[in-house]
């Protein structure tokens, strides 16, 4: 168990390309932090720097109270779950789980005890003597988790561990990871590009864009008060409507804003609504229907109950306090 601190961490590749810059994160002991952002935003690089697989060009990474910048991955007391699981194909599941303990000269009875415990927790007991290739995707995922937990490390690092699974399995495994982490109470750093995964797993989210932190906060904070247009558009599904303030000059209290954000679920049909859209497409989701349209050349999406009436032109009203205002040049939130 340990806290993890990133102080002004940056990554500059030889040749001068800056992948990550000025990252500050304080991760409390036992906290589940999710790094989320689109591909290429530097989230994996950041995780690999914490793991020690990538050198740290700027700043300091601390695990516990120890600066680990120049410490080998093996000695950082972390365990990592890889996107492709990285199970050793020529070893049985048992050997895969035991490998890290064996390398650390753990006594044999202790290894057996811990492997048995991990197998029990993850329900992979029946497969212990199989080779990874004889397992399904979900089982391999469990073995990869098992390899992390037998070591009883100070922190878990997850690098998009669910992205190779099908959609349904992803939802179950997501829950399993969450429950496991709560039960073990191990500090975790989890990387994903899937905002839904990020929202559901995280104690706190770190939203990254182009190697910079856009916002850190609990899922609800980030959802309710996105710090920038980037976060507003990235977190939440369907994505928040971002409308140029010039297209809707009649909305009250928006004079100083450049961009106005309204979540599709905060909009509703009202005869006297201030926004009028012409409908271009309707998507049926069963419980809801998403109506896409535009007003003054700006795209607007609205989530309506599935029994709502439709016409070519709709007048929309928004929930009081549901407007998010952003600065025109910087895209930062204005409160």
């Amino acid at each position: 168990m340990a806290s993890i601190t990133l102080e002004n961490v940056g990554k500059v590749y030889t040749g001068g390309t800056r992948a990550v810059g000025g990252v500050n994160i304080d991760i409390a002991d036992g906290e589940f932090i999710v790094l989320v952002g689109p591909s290429g935003c530097g989230k994996s690089t950041l995780l690999r720097m914490v793991a020690g697989l990538e050198s740290i060009s700027e700043g300091e990474v601390k695990i516990g109270n120890r600066v680990v910048n120049n410490i080998e991955p093996a000695d950082r007391d972390i365990a990592m779950v890889f996107q492709n699981y990285a199970l050793y194909p020529h070893m049985s599941v048992r050997q895969n789980l035991a490998y890290g303990l064996k390398n650390r000269n753990t006594p044999k009875p202790e290894i057996e005890k811990r492997v048995a415990e991990a197998a029990e927790i993850l329900q992979i007991g029946p497969y212990l003597d199989r080779k990874p290739r004889a397992l399904s995707g979900g089982q391999r995922q469990r073995v990869a988790m098992g390899r992390a937990i037998v070591r009883e490390p100070a922190a878990f690092l997850f690098d998009e561990p669910l992205s190779n699974l099908d959609a349904k399995l992803r939802v179950t495994m997501r829950l399993e990871i969450k429950e496991l982490q709560k039960r073990l109470g191990t500090t975790s750093l989890y990387v994903t590009h899937d905002q839904l995964e990020a929202m559901t797993l995280a104690d706190r989210l770190v939203v990254l864009s182009a190697g910079q932190i856009e916002q850190i906060g609990t899922p609800l904070e980030v959802y309710r008060k996105p710090a920038s247009t980037f976060v507003a558009g990235f977190i939440g599904s369907p994505a928040m409507n971002l409308i140029d303030a010039k297209a809707v000059p009649h909305l009250p209290g928006t004079a100083h804003a450049g961009t106005i954000g309204i979540r599709p679920e905060d909009l509703s049909v009202a005869a006297d609504g201030p926004i009028e859209i012409s409908v271009t497409a309707v998507e049926e989701l069963g419980a809801q229907r998403l109506v896409h349209g535009h007003t003054q050349g700006e795209r607007v999406t609205v989530a309506l109950p599935s029994d709502s009436e439709l016409s070519d032109n709709l007048r929309l009203a928004y929930r009081p306090g549901a407007l998010h205002l952003f600065h025109r040049e910087t895209g930062k939130r204005i409160d």
Partner: peptide, 18 residues
């Protein structure tokens, strides 16, 4: 051989020779 296998082994405490 996927690089992640060697990385996983490095985290598992195996030195370069091992």
């Amino acid at each position: 051989i996927p690089a992640s296998l060697r990385e996983a082994a490095a985290i598992d405490g195996a030195g370069p020779v091992r």
